[in-house]
Write a protein that binds this DNA or RNA. Structure first.
Lengths: 337, 337
DNA sequence: TTGAAAGCGCTAACAC
DNA sequence: GTGTTAGCGCTTTCAA
């Protein structure tokens, strides 16, 4: 690979001049510029990003730290981050932590040593303190890490209220909530939203912990329905656990939505693939990722942004698990409310 | 952040000595070593990865180039790559190309300029030539890029034969194949495997192009079954398109598996979430990713590896879409054959 | 056993 | 307008 020196020699100028035309900075005569451009083209020269990094202490890379890309909520988020990053000329380093402090810490080290320009965090295994100490531009995505860290989340609580209300509106009189892991922000908020509604409406309810895991949700639902056969509406904390519940209901011979209605949360593609289609609270996943990336890049490039807390709207998507869908008038069989 | 100079000063030695203890290379007296270690600890010093890169022309990063992480086949693959990379001290740069040559090219540039040590490629939008020119350690994953590029794929052809045979074994007499995009290696091979069986067995069949897209598969299946109501077995080119087919069948009032049996390909988690569970040909996705990463790292570290073509075994997973599953004797309702 | 110094490729004062 | 040169932080000859 040719270096800036080669280009300078080829063009008959100094490296400084080459650098100037490369960065469009400082005075360069038309002729010099032409000579340099020609040399660059002739040698097929590209500036060495590492050398630039060393000088500028920036790398054009951002870290994306999330629990596990295999969890279907994250691919779309990751994709959004990457799209925006690419558009702004950044590159994404991809870090799965499984919510393990150790891995997270290891990655933070590695990322800092590589001069990443900032980090998007969808995990929260550590104390707020640890993130502040990073001393890097940060954005919290789908998690709340602390007061002064820019944050992108969706309306988890309101979504849960919508979900519970939707079940009631459709005639359910005995609800269950398969809640996500305790201590994980969105799961807790969904739980609270659900509680708000059942308490206000004085509806009998049961809460079961199902994590965000399909198999666990299935087993939990089997037990739940066997011991509480009168349950006629299930609000699952995620679309994955909703799928688990549906499996359990199928095994028990319960018809969905006739005997039991099911609603999920997230709006991942899975929901539309299930038969019947899964009614769910849709988060604007792509938008969340894209916004997080934009906020991070603004921070990196020192364009101050006004708001630091961004809560994006959720939307009830009605499909077959809560309502008989008679005809196929919209291609994916879903409706927005 | 402290630099090696700070450490040297603190320890009362030269930077060369610090470097020696850092890299455990060359002679260092016990005392010097002790002083340096103490200084490192005291200053909480970590070597600057960028400066090292500049000197060594390596970065400890590998590029992972794939079409779209939103496609559910890729998250697990990506996860595997990342796990192995992390274990060997590498970091993964994450690149979605949508199979667009332009994006691919842009990423190649960026990756080279950053001194990435190698690339794992799950796309193939360009001529073989382009990949050779990269002049970087390369591994092709789920694609075949050329003779002398180490490759990890699964038994696509054999899997397709298994799938078609399974349908016939279960009494199907009129098959359809929803094939994946033409020109995409695995899709073509699955098509060929299917053809092999239907020709050999002289079974009536129909081929329809459904891409790897659920909605398209659904529409295609609607038309397909309406004009060919005698079809009683569908081999979808992927689990996603199988889900689309199941939707279409539900709309048409066809019972699965009684009226029509369905089998997919890939073995992504979706299959076990559908009701009934989706019979499929399972690829060892995680293993494929992990092997690809190991092969790449071996190449990078100049440990020659013997075989360059690796075809991993597929496995028929029987679930509810081809066989009435009466009881729930295995927790996910699946069986391996 | 250790240190001085050159150099990895690039940028930006500073001088001319 | 342009070139010389001193770094950015690290590694590694080469001398001592």
């Amino acid at each position: 690979m040719p270096t800036i020196k080669d280009v300078a020699k080829q063009a008959g100028v100094s490296v400084a001049t080459v650098s100037r035309v490369l960065n469009k900075k400082g005075y360069v005569s038309k002729e010099a510029e032409k000579a340099v451009s020609a040399a660059i083209k002739k040698l097929d020269y590209r500036p060495n990003a590492v050398a630039r990094s060393l000088y500028h202490k920036t790398s054009g890379m951002i870290g994306l730290v999330l629990p596990d890309i295999s969890n279907p909520f994250f691919p779309e988020l990751a994709r959004a981050v990457e799209d925006v990053a690419l558009a702004y000329g950044y590159t994404v380093v991809f870090c799965n932590t499984d919510e393990e402090v150790e891995k997270e810490q290891k990655y933070f080290e590695a990322l800092k040593q590589k001069y990443v320009d900032g980090i998007i965090l969808s995990t929260s295994s550590q104390e707020q303190e640890a993130y502040h100490q990073l001393d890097l531009p940060l954005v919290a995505l789908d998690r709340i890490l602390g007061e002064n860290i820019p944050t992108v989340v969706s309306e988890n609580r309101k979504g849960a209220e919508l979900a519970a209300t939707h079940l009631l509106d459709n005639g359910c009189r005995h609800l269950a909530h398969l809640r996500g892991p305790e201590g994980v922000g969105p799961a807790d908020e969904r739980y609270e939203g659900f509680m708000e509604v059942v308490r206000r409406e004085k509806i009998p309810y049961i809460i079961k912990n199902a994590g965000f895991d399909m198999e666990k949700a299935k087993q939990t639902t089997l037990k739940l329905i066997r011991s509480n056969p009168s349950i006629d509406g299930i609000f699952a904390g995620s679309d994955i656990t909703a799928a688990g519940a549906m499996h359990a209901l199928a095994i028990l011979g319960k018809k969905v939505p006739d005997d039991v209605k099911v609603i999920g949360f997230d709006g991942i593609p899975l929901g539309s693939m299930l038969v019947p289609g899964l009614t769910t609270i849709e988060q604007p996943i792509y938008k969340m990722g894209a916004l997080a990336a934009r906020l991070l890049i603004k921070q990196i490039e020192k364009n101050p942004h006004d708001k630091i807390y961004h809560e994006l709207p959720v939307k009830l998507i009605v499909r077959g698990t809560t309502e008989e869908v008679k005809n196929d008038w919209k291609s994916d069989g879903s409706r927005e409310h």
